[in-house]
Design a binder for these strands. Structure first.
Lengths: 151, 151
DNA sequence: CTAAGTGCAAATAGTTTGCATAGCG
DNA sequence: CGCTATGCAAACTATTTGCACTTAG
């Protein structure tokens, strides 16, 4: 976790009367250092490598908090679990998801974003956020590569 | 349900050894005649207006079937439930969702789709499907209109 | 001190499944 | 008839919550 995130978080916590606890710090540190698109359970497992006594409930509560203060975004890639990704200090981006091996690639494209705004305006909407996910086969899986689960 | 959907369904059912039952027909008819983006529970309620004895399990099973044969698409708009929308004979489209009143507007934009393909190609992906959702305020809610739930 | 945070287990919500029975083909 | 579909209730999965206890400020 870099300074910037730390500051944003301290500020937010102060402003909302939130305490900085051992568990919270551990969860947040782990979340930002692992990176990627973590499900709560995955994150919980990582956290428990450091402190076996942290409960899932706390991880859920902490991630909800991170979401509310804008440091993490909750995502739903259709596998039935909510995944979180770091948000602070990052550009908005979208996702390419391989339906075979589960690889997730991030991308950003300004022209598409501009067009989205155009479409929204046409319908009288003011867009505050969006998500775009492209599902298909990654380079490797098109060539008959093995899926993660069969590796 | 129009002829076309009926045919697609009959064909699919025949091909997969599926039976046409009273419950299935009722559920499918209801689904296509109500339209929109129905959650399983909403659909179940509509169905029960006709036949109070149909179980949720059957609605879940039937909608999964419709999804598999391509007549319906499952969507996740972040409210924790899976919603289905009619798919057969319709152009692909995306969604504008009002975060205040819950209104969902459909739109399609070929240029955006083309750009998506371009981006995917750049990353070595072959896209088979995608979803794009724009969240924000609709015209009415920007003017301080009332949300559905407070109406 | 004392309000806020935590762990645990129980509670929810949405969805799936096992099994005995009903019904299409 | 034989196999698939249905209803019901129990099982499951992901997530939330009530409560007694701990802890940061």
């Amino acid at each position: 976790m870099n300074r910037n995130m730390d500051e944003v978080l301290q500020h937010y916590m102060a402003q909302h009367g939130l305490k900085s606890t051992r568990q919270r710090s551990l969860i947040i540190d782990t979340f930002f250092s692992v990176g990627g698109h973590l499900s709560v359970e995955e994150l919980w497992n990582k956290v428990r490598e450091q402190d076996i006594k942290v409960s899932v409930a706390t991880v859920y509560r902490t991630m909800k908090l991170l979401g509310e203060c804008g440091l993490a975004h909750a995502r739903n890639f259709g596998d039935g679990q909510t995944r979180y990704e770091a948000a602070a200090g990052r550009h908005h981006h979208d996702h390419l998801i391989c339906t075979h091996c589960g690889t997730i690639v991030e991308f950003e494209d300004d022209r598409i974003e501009q067009m989205q705004d155009g479409v929204a305006r046409k319908h009288g909407f003011t867009v505050t956020s969006h998500k775009m996910e492209l599902y298909g086969l990654c380079r490797n899986c098109q060539r008959g590569g093995k899926a993660k689960s069969e590796a």
